[in-house]
Simulated scan of single mutants.
Amino acid sequence: MRSYLIGKVVSPEIRTVGVKRDSRCILTFGILVGRSVVSFDVWDDDKNYDRFVNYPEGFRVCAFVGDGLDDKGRIKYYLNDMVPCPDEFEESVRRLFSSEAA
C-alpha cells in the first residue's frame, strides 16, 4: 500500500559504515507525524541522497512511502520520495477534514 505523510524531519544523522573493504554513508532520520516517528535510512548511492541530506531538523516535508514485511514478519516502511511541504498544501489538506467542509 502507498501512503503520503506530512511531517517534520527529526534527528538527521550521517553515519559511515564499512562495506566490503570500502566505506559508505547512510543518512538516518525520522519523520514526526502527530506523536509517532517513522525512521528511514537512505544510502549514499540513492538518487535522492544529495537532496535529502540538505533537509535540516524540523523541516516540514511531504513523503511518499510504501510498506511491506521484513524478514521477521514486521511491517516496514520504505521511503520512495520526499519533498518540502508548502504551507498552503498543509492548510488545504487540513481544510478537507475540518467540520466546516463536511
Results as ranks from 00 to 15, higher is better:
97 F>E: 12
97 F>H: 14
61 V>E: 02
3 S>D: 09
30 G>N: 00
4 Y>H: 11
62 C>G: 12
41 D>W: 03
79 L>C: 05
66 G>I: 10
79 L>F: 03
49 Y>R: 01
4 Y>M: 13
82 M>V: 07
101 A>T: 15
10 V>H: 04
36 S>M: 02
42 V>C: 08
91 E>A: 15
70 D>E: 10
71 D>V: 14
6 I>H: 03
5 L>K: 08
37 V>A: 03
80 N>E: 14
18 G>N: 14
47 K>R: 13
17 V>K: 09
47 K>Q: 12
59 F>I: 04
22 D>R: 14
77 Y>E: 09
32 L>G: 01
75 I>T: 12
82 M>H: 03
96 L>T: 13
52 F>T: 07
98 S>P: 10
61 V>T: 07
79 L>G: 04
51 R>A: 06
24 R>D: 02
45 D>T: 14
93 V>G: 08
44 D>R: 05
29 F>D: 00
34 G>K: 01
40 F>Q: 05
63 A>Q: 05
31 I>L: 00
52 F>N: 07
87 D>H: 11
66 G>R: 10
47 K>H: 12
85 C>L: 14
102 A>P: 12
32 L>N: 01
98 S>A: 15
34 G>W: 01
17 V>C: 07
99 S>A: 15
87 D>Y: 11
9 V>A: 01
37 V>C: 00
31 I>S: 04
21 R>I: 07
8 K>P: 00
11 S>Y: 07
100 E>R: 15
58 G>M: 08
35 R>C: 03
30 G>V: 02
101 A>W: 15
80 N>V: 14
91 E>W: 11
42 V>D: 06
40 F>T: 00
61 V>H: 04
61 V>Y: 03
13 E>N: 08
43 W>C: 06
71 D>Q: 15
35 R>I: 03
63 A>M: 06
48 N>C: 13
14 I>P: 01
19 V>W: 04
66 G>C: 10
71 D>P: 09
13 E>P: 01
2 R>I: 13
9 V>H: 00
23 S>T: 15
18 G>D: 12
37 V>L: 00
99 S>F: 14
50 D>C: 10
15 R>P: 06
37 V>N: 01
90 E>Q: 13
86 P>N: 13
42 V>P: 05
9 V>G: 00
56 P>Q: 07
91 E>M: 14
93 V>Y: 08
57 E>F: 03
52 F>A: 08
28 T>W: 06
37 V>D: 00
93 V>H: 08
8 K>I: 00
102 A>F: 15
85 C>F: 09
10 V>G: 02
54 N>E: 11
24 R>L: 00
51 R>N: 04
38 V>I: 12
53 V>S: 11
39 S>A: 05
43 W>E: 04
17 V>N: 06
36 S>E: 05
5 L>S: 06
93 V>Q: 11
21 R>E: 11
28 T>Q: 10
5 L>Y: 09
47 K>F: 13
30 G>W: 00
